[in-house]
Design a protein around this nucleic acid. Structure first.
Lengths: 352, 352
DNA sequence: TTGAAAGCGATACCAG
DNA sequence: CTGGTATCGCTTTCAA
């Protein structure tokens, strides 16, 4: 059996309390005691049981990450960033993939709630109401002992969130297409439940409106390669000379099907993706896409969450106790990260 | 604060014990008691604290998954499969990405050890000795209370493992290339620390030997697109007419660089990958690759692990108490999953 | 069928 | 600086 603090105490000939201190606050014990304890711990291969610790401290040092589909390369990028930054603050990551199912999402969150200090929900698919209900249950936004939630790639009050500036991304994309002479652009929409999808569509509508371009909306598809391939022919049959896909996977599906049907890209139709996943630059033609700051989204999400967790621990003694409400003493609850159009060869002049 | 069992007990007007029973073994309490408890639990939104439960039962109902790099699409596929099957048995997944760093790997495993019932190590990068040392610490293979380890994509005694039949995959690949007229083939090796790399190389050597082909080994590279791109010119300068890459990412890097340098694939050189990640079929030319049963590896890994965990719980009363050592009463400790060559357009006849 | 009490592993508090 | 003791939330004897 793995060694417990008792074993260490016995071997070192001290009390449990001393072991605890020697390991957690070495400066508070006599050097020789500390040394004995350290040696005993090392000999026994002692590692504290974080679950037991969490029980009493109220901190598990785990953060829960919930996302719809790990198979979409966008998410692994974000998760890696989350892991890196979480680890830096000594948090471990509990990951759950919901398979795009809102029901799974909710039950997963509830089940995990007691094992994590807070949640990072990436592109959650639950409705606003459901999310808020969950938040209430966890006391995410209220009274003292609570499990905060930070939402990524979606804005849903009252949760803090980190999102990408899709509107600007769309503006860049549309500006680019307009300059190339395109006047009719199709949008292949992602899942209805996806806030990003709605956000992107909103941005796109405003962008096309301001450029006086026609927007053709192609039905909602799964955010996958197959989803894209499924509507490719429909898009090709439309009068659009360019198509913007919900994300890169969908764009890749379009490209693939276009190639199979010998529909020239960008000769006959230009294609734009969203996310800038690694492999978008590798396909032929390389995909023009709106890059999202994946690393930054993960990092900021972790920062936001850890801030909230710190507050929880010392609710009053904020190191810099500015008077409340004098200036803006609340941290910004919403971070918006920049997007950047990456122009590659899948976009070109509109055929006149 | 989230409700505890006490709150439920108070609200239902019964003792903690009854709440526990009503929820865990409903048939052991009077119907009306059960009902009161159930209603109280529902009203309070009570979810048991799994960590606290784990403390006493010795079961956390979590399994730890450790892998080198989530950015390699191969791993998300395996993880998804693991999650699906783990969830089916009511296990949650604790995921950690080690960034290909053996030191991180070891410390992560130790830190997580107490929070999980067992580990699934995907392609661990630690040395055999280190892994065995870890196993000893966790009592992975020994006495009663312990944390079993199942290793995926690697064989290292004494751990049970699930691997892919690389040798056969290589045989298929080489057979294919040989039939196309290739006689000199290059191998772009992956990380030295990778068992898969060694395994694939071994299989390749034996395959080329039996076909009497020449094998040219190109240095070890990172298992990434950049890694592949980095040696592409070197490969092109060699006398090889075909190249097999450690994995698809590396192959994609090769393809990319070949295209940039206008080195025809498969005209000038054929390219074969390994893993069959989703996007391999989407690049141009589509990549010929050896498919690995990712779903199956995840599933079998979980099965193996859960078997071990069940044993732990009831070490004696095996439902079918066959006499030990009479026949082979041990479950197979190593599962080898099939591989399948997927022929696409990146391979073609050798230029004569 | 139910409740009281012990205890899992660790930390925090309070005496000494 | 150190040790005893209560406690976290839950399950599990053991009696009643």
């Amino acid at each position: 059996m793995a060694a417990t603090i008792k074993d260490v105490a016995r071997l070192a000939g001290v009390s449990q309390s001393s072991v605890c201190r020697a390991l957690a606050r070495p400066e508070q014990v006599r050097p020789d005691t500390r040394e004995r304890v350290e040696r005993a711990a090392r000999d026994l291969g002692y590692y504290p049981n974080r679950a037991a610790r969490g029980l009493i401290t109220g901190r598990t040092c785990n953060i829960g990450v919930v996302l719809p589909d790990l198979a979409n390369p966008f998410f692994p990028s974000v998760v890696k960033s989350i892991q890196t930054h979480a680890r830096r603050s000594d948090y471990a990551v509990f990951l759950s993939d919901t398979d795009e199912d809102p029901a799974v999402e909710a039950s997963l969150i509830r089940a995990l709630a007691k094992q994590v200090d807070g949640f990072l929900l990436c592109s959650p698919r639950a409705s606003d109401e459901e999310l808020r209900a969950l938040g209430d249950e966890l006391g995410a936004t209220s009274g003292e002992p609570r499990t905060p939630i930070v939402v990524l790639n979606r804005r849903v009050s009252p949760f803090p969130s980190v999102t990408a500036d899709s509107a600007d991304g769309m503006r860049q994309a549309i500006g680019h297409l307009h300059a190339l002479g395109h006047r009719r652009v199709a949008y292949v929409a992602g899942p209805r439940a996806s806030w990003s999808n709605r956000d992107r569509l909103r941005g796109l509508r405003s962008a096309t409106a301001s450029y006086d371009m026609e927007l053709i909306e192609a039905g909602n598809v799964a955010p996958t390669v197959d989803g894209g391939a499924a509507v490719a022919d429909l898009v090709a049959a439309s009068p659009a000379t360019a198509v913007i896909a919900y994300n890169d996977l969908v764009a890749l599906g379009l490209l693939h099907r276009f190639r199979a049907r010998d529909i020239g890209v960008p000769g006959r139709i230009s294609v734009v993706g969203f996310d800038d996943i690694l492999l978008s630059g590798l396909v032929v033609p390389p995909l023009t896409t709106v890059a999202i700051a994946k690393e930054e989204i993960g990092r900021r999400g972790v920062e936001l969450l850890i801030d909230l967790l710190d507050d929880r621990r010392n609710p009053n003694k904020r190191e810099n106790p500015r008077p409340r409400n004098e200036r803006d003493d609340r941290r910004p609850l919403h971070r918006r990260t920049a997007t950047q159009l990456i122009v590659r060869e899948s976009t070109g002049p509109a055929r006149s």
